[in-house]
Design a protein around this nucleic acid. Sequence first.
DNA 1: GAAAAGATAGTAACTAATTACTATCTTGAG
DNA 2: CTCAAGATAGTAATTAGTTACTATCTTTTC
Lengths: 206, 206
Amino acid sequence: MDKARQKNLPAEERRNVTVEAVIELAATTNPGDITTAAIAKHMQLTQGALFRHFPNKEAIWQAVMSWVAERLMSRIEKAAKGIKSPLEAMQAMFMAHIDFVSEHPGAPRMLFGELQGAKATPAKRLAHALLKHYAEHLYELIDAAKSCGELPSGLDNQAAATLFIGTIQGLIMQSLISGDMEQMRRAAPGVFAIYRRGIICKEFEG
Amino acid sequence: MDKARQKNLPAEERRNVTVEAVIELAATTNPGDITTAAIAKHMQLTQGALFRHFPNKEAIWQAVMSWVAERLMSRIEKAAKGIKSPLEAMQAMFMAHIDFVSEHPGAPRMLFGELQGAKATPAKRLAHALLKHYAEHLYELIDAAKSCGELPSGLDNQAAATLFIGTIQGLIMQSLISGDMEQMRRAAPGVFAIYRRGIICKEFEG
DNA sequence: GAAAAGATAGTAACTAATTACTATCTTGAG
DNA sequence: CTCAAGATAGTAATTAGTTACTATCTTTTC
């Protein structure tokens, strides 16, 4: 089980362990402050040994972003799958996302940290692709909901999608700040209920 | 005007210029990557000279956080002042906040960057205080809105406040990611409209 | 025994902070 | 007013400590 403390792991396994180590470290450490030495120490390895499996630090971050993108999207798509009502699917997607980040607090921190950087690293490109993929999925659901009358056709698609993602990002931010990831799980249902009413309700315009 | 390129500024003025330099740098650079050398270069000063006005780097960050807290809160309070309707006041507050960060993109980056750090620096304490102050202001407005019937008494106060702040944070995040601060200004009204309907609307429960 | 994985011991570049020295401004005595 | 004396602000060079990365030797595994 605890591959992290094992020695002489095959290369691919070692790379996986490295990615997990980074995610774990990112849960409590600012991503920019995570050094290769800290990563190595966390997996009971010497610092130089890391470079047997990654050509440079950037490659490690790329691997981490891939990990996050794959796991997050698969979780979300699995959650929404098979739900006929688009609105219900959106809610399931929302909750699955919250679940994921409360299990892996380091994941959103890596994402945000990477996206905030000015320079266009390969890892940043991966993060961008993830977000784009996410938004497309959302647009489809919103359009489907309009088609079947679950959402009013007059709803501003972009605002609705922006607020969906923004709501999650806001929840994450506030949990990161308070240091309590459970807070996010508790607050999520009430917060989504407001969002839901906001996009459904046709009244009170202006 | 351009005090930044002037030499032999009085100490207080030089400190102000330093804070502004940091905010400007933070607009395009990850706060953690801002070095004292970069700050000094941006104000046409030698690196060592900075430490004639600040005992250490942490003191610079403290000064920056104070700057952000003062300016942001004064803007918001001024915007809400004199508006009788609590709901209208909330909207004015929202827009003032968006205005502020689109003028000073570095400000939220410093805030988030500092809050994400694990260790409790003095700057982080300032950031926490700002957020607490902000939330209190919000709670008062929500309660007032309930009292005068603008918001339903059944509304979940905490969820409403969380989503208010979260919505802003989400908008900021997405603008930071796209690198276009104007996007935030454009998206803000539509996004707030959804939020507004969400907290007003009593229907569609469950 | 050969190849893969890890340990050890570096290096060059960078960072915050310090220091000895210089330039500029301010002030008060003659 | 004037100009020396002190105060203030800035420079250039240097420090100790980190960081990503590398070269070489050792161990493990098949």
